[in-house]
């Protein structure tokens, strides 16, 4: 295998790994955030508006990690 083919293969594998592994943690985190929000909404339905707002803040924080992985894999695929 020559160097160009090896580089291309490395890019593809790296992009896949960056997105795939990078989505595991945020997936778990978003699930936990939604679980907590649903439980607290079930206990106290009056607080629904506030809880949804803060749930989105929490989801945005953990989703940012997946987005970092996505940006890394897009850069690997289209730029480097």
């Amino acid at each position: 295998m020559d160097l160009a083919a090896a580089t291309f293969l490395g890019k593809l594998i790296g992009a896949g790994l960056a997105m795939g592994l990078g989505a595991i943690g945020p997936g778990i985190g978003i699930g936990i955030a939604a679980m907590g929000a649903l439980q607290s909404m079930a206990r106290n339905p009056d607080m629904e508006g506030t809880i949804v707002t803060y749930m989105f803040i929490g989801i945005a924080f953990s989703e940012a990690l997946a987005i970092f992985g996505l940006v890394v894999s897009l850069i690997l695929l289209f730029v480097v």
Partner: peptide, 16 residues
């Protein structure tokens, strides 16, 4: 960085 990548990544990934 997080702010800008979050918005950019979501919208660009959606288009792709």
């Amino acid at each position: 960085v997080a702010f800008s990548f979050r918005l950019f990544g979501n919208i660009f990934a959606g288009e792709v």
